[in-house]
Amino acid sequence: MHEDNDHRVDGNAAAGILREVFASDVTTARVVCGHCTAGTSVAETKTYLAGPGSILRCPGCDAILARITKIRDTVWLDLSGSASWQIHTG
């Protein structure tokens, strides 16, 4: 949170941009890494905020789980590094 946006934070800091895309909060979602198959909450991912994009990495193996880039009115979402997202909708 707060400033120093080039430094590593965690997935809590991506809650706002993710909330633009998803209908509910996904920081509590469980994401499975496509590389090492470990599961973690989105809140606990290693998150890098830089310029127009955010990168979420696996806290276990550092593989990229998600790239979220916003350019004007368009969000570009690349989830190819993750195997699945388990999202609580209740």
């Binding site: 509910s24 909060d25 198959t37 470990a38 599961g39 909450s41 606990e44 696996c58 609580h88 209740g90």
Partner: peptide, 23 residues
């Protein structure tokens, strides 16, 4: 922290309340 847990574990969430507001 939880990276070492395996994928089968269900995510714990606190549902309802302002956090789960949708739209």
């Amino acid at each position: 922290m939880s990276a070492t847990e395996r994928a089968e574990g269900a995510a714990k969430t606190e549902s309802s309340g302002p956090a789960s507001r949708r739209g």
